[in-house]
């Protein structure tokens, strides 16, 4: 059996969990942090799928640039996801 499949399934399910937490979270700053954790798990998934090129571009983009830009946006606008 290919030993990389167990972490592959684990990280993709973890990505699902954190994506759900990011979507339902009321506080937008916490939602951005959950989204960044979800991106980290997807980085591991991409690495296990043998895509080193995509890891190199996905890691700075999804863990660094998206959260930074979204935090800039939240800082300039409002923090709550009004219900």
């Amino acid at each position: 059996m290919d030993p990389t499949l167990v972490p592959l399934a684990f990280f993709s399910v973890a990505g699902l969990v954190f994506a759900y937490l990011a979507v339902v979270e009321k506080d937008l700053v916490k939602a951005v942090i959950f989204s960044a954790i979800q991106s980290s798990t997807y980085t591991a998934v991409l690495y296990l799928l043998r895509a080193p090129d995509t890891v190199l571009v996905y890691l700075p983009v999804a863990v660094g640039l998206y959260p930074a830009a979204l935090l800039f946006l939240i800082g300039k606008t409002e923090r709550g996801d009004g219900e």
Binding site: P52, D53, V55, L56, V57, P60, V61, G64, L65
Partner: peptide, 14 residues
């Protein structure tokens, strides 16, 4: 090796 223009640009954008 793994890498290229898009990857390096995203790394420098940090």
């Amino acid at each position: 090796a793994p890498g290229g223009g898009f990857q390096a640009g995203a790394a420098l954008a940090v």
